[in-house]
């Protein structure tokens, strides 16, 4: 099982991407940042953010918002040139900075990359994504590339989530996969 956990890289597990700098605003060093957090203004709620390379750390203060971005002031970024130099930079917070979840509640980042197994132990691939289109959370499961299937994230369809062991167990019947002919772990599933 330990080998399966290695689908997730360590950097992904230890930090979470919360936004990207999309440009500068004005001449006083204000940044335009697209937030990836559930509530956009929570961008600065988890403490200082680190750069993509993990080097510099920025203290952010959200000053306002425009159409699709937050206006953010960062300590040490004093002029437009310095702000533009950060354009395209991904901003990370440590995974440990996120608050504890409730029972049966998981961060998407924790679920993505887990190995997916059927009840009988055979591999279905990995969790490639977590979605919610307004009718409950859904796990997207498949090989690292190729076909994927969608499984409802319910107690019946996903009876076991083992973050320590790096795997989720899927009930094929309750997950709607009982008719799947191909082994998803090979990427040759019926559905594209």
């Amino acid at each position: 099982m330990a080998a399966q956990k290695n689908h997730r890289n360590e950097a992904q597990a230890s930090r979470v991407c919360v936004g990207v700098v999309t440009g500068a605003h004005g001449v006083k060093g204000m940044l335009r940042v697209r937030s990836f957090t559930e509530n956009p203004v929570d961008l600065a709620a988890y403490g200082p953010v680190s750069y993509e390379e993990g080097g510099r750390v920025l203290d952010l203060v959200v000053e306002g918002s425009v159409k699709d971005a937050l206006l953010v002031r960062a300590a040490g970024v004093e002029d437009r040139d310095a702000a533009l130099a950060l354009k395209g930079t991904l901003l990370y917070v440590p995974r440990a900075a996120l608050p504890e979840t409730e029972e049966d509640e998981y961060y998407h980042g924790d679920l993505i990359g887990l190995a997916a197994e059927a009840m009988d132990g055979h591999s279905l691939g990995i969790v490639r994504g977590v979605h919610n289109f307004g009718a409950g959370d859904i796990l997207e499961i498949g090989a690292e590339s190729g076909a994927t299937v969608m499984v409802p994230f319910t107690q019946a369809a996903v009876p076991e989530v083992d973050l320590e062991g790096g795997r989720v167990t899927v009930d094929l019947t309750a997950g709607g996969l009982a008719e799947e002919g191909a082994d998803l772990s090979t990427g040759n599933g019926k559905h594209g």
Binding site: C17, F36, D42, D104, E105, Y107, G129, V130, Q155
Partner: peptide
């Protein structure tokens, strides 16, 4: 049409 965004601090609840 599916948009694949970043996970950020989003949470999923198993019901």
């Amino acid at each position: 049409r599916t948009f694949h965004g970043h996970s950020g601090d989003k949470r999923a609840k198993r019901v």
